[in-house]
Amino acid sequence: MAKKSIKIRAKMKGDVVTVKALMTHPMETGARKDKKTGELIPAHFIQEVTCEAGGKVRLTALWSGGVSKNPYLSFKFKGAKKGDTLKLSWVDNTGKSDSAEAKIG
């Protein structure tokens, strides 16, 4: 398998879990030109990111190509406990997807 494309960390402070995630993705808007050939680079970006913990969807992020390359995402939620598994998955506009899991610590 290729290098892991998602780094994810979930930390609990009080009753709030803070999630930080870094994904590896080119996030091409489709409006950028290849400097050598002058042709447009086709759009290739993550469209949807879903985060689940404790069997519930905590956050769904809908993205355009306006999100930076190798996107970073952070959010907070309540209602989970230490040791729960947090699952993050993404789908891009070409239909590719990836996911990663982390234990809340």
Partner: peptide, 19 residues
Amino acid sequence: IASFNLGEGAEGFVSTRIK
């Protein structure tokens, strides 16, 4: 650029990087 739908228990907080 982005729209975040908050699920159960999610706080009013999101952070990301944009172009």
